[in-house]
Nucleic acid binder design. Structure first.
Lengths: 146, 146
DNA sequence: GTACATGCAAACCTTTTGCACAGGG
DNA sequence: CCCTGTGCAAAAGGTTTGCATGTAC
């Protein structure tokens, strides 16, 4: 939990500024929500009303470089950001409901073997993967079309 | 191969205009390349110099609605478009090289069972999925970090 | 005092939209 | 004729950048 703050504070030339701490806090508190930059900005503004959107973007870029955050794209025209657990380096799987737009997360790693297969068959060294399922969640189930 | 043209021509109120035919032709000729809208526009412009970028976007939207094209996002800030084989309705898997940026395609469907598992465990009706592997291709293999 | 951070505004890029015009059914 | 399609230009998002100011070390 504190790993994020520490990692930033001890990451060489970077500083753990109030703005960055606030952004990390928001990410921690909403780790299930796949927030967009603007949403993060709005939430941080509740605590720190003066913060600029550019700062949010710059911080998110930094966190992405430090591998503390994963940038995901669900095709809605904006990027979303997930905190990245240190002990669970990748394997983010998402269930995206085409009806209500809700995004659920699947935590298990379903793709161990697949990574190996793909690596072997294509001479490709897999570092990370991303898997998204599109469909209809329990609340919205049974699609009209298909 | 001709299925695309037919599908457009016979799809109710839509017309197979020269512009649309040109765009389809470019997509067919570059079906392995994951072109962006602008790239498609540039290629079509070689044949049809007057075509507008907006027409390309509108055509791609239409093709997406007709399920002839799949819109993919690799996180580089622009959408890319894949022709979608009729007999292979979804299951597009990509190997994205973090070094040279090349994008290879995996054709097999690796996720049949996974779809079922996820559906059962999360009450989620899977309609489509998208899987991306990030890593280093044969030419660029052995990453520096990690 | 030097290097990193911030806020603001402007710039940028991709994508969408409005509108007048063209053309097929 | 009416409805769909097109080109152009403008608008609309989301994201990045330049610059002057601020602030750690």
């Amino acid at each position: 939990m504190q790993q994020f703050y520490e990692r930033l504070a001890t990451s060489g030339q970077h500083r753990l500024t109030p703005q960055r701490a606030d952004i990390l806090q928001v990410l921690l508190q909403h780790s299930e929500e796949h927030l967009s930059a603007e949403e993060i900005h709005a939430l941080v503004s509740e605590t720190n009303p003066g913060i600029g959107l550019a700062t949010v973007y710059r911080t998110l870029d930094l966190l992405e470089q430090l591998n503390l955050v994963l940038k995901v794209n669900f095709g809605d025209g904006k990027s979303r950001y997930d905190l990245r657990e240190d002990d669970e380096p990748h394997h983010h799987h998402h269930l995206i409901c085409l009806s209500c737009g809700r995004i659920a997360e699947v935590r298990q790693d379903l793709l161990h073997n697949l990574e190996e297969t793909v690596g072997r068959e294509h001479g490709f060294t897999v570092v990370d993967h991303r898997l998204q399922f599109f469909g209809y969640c329990a609340d919205c189930s049974s699609p009209t079309e298909n």
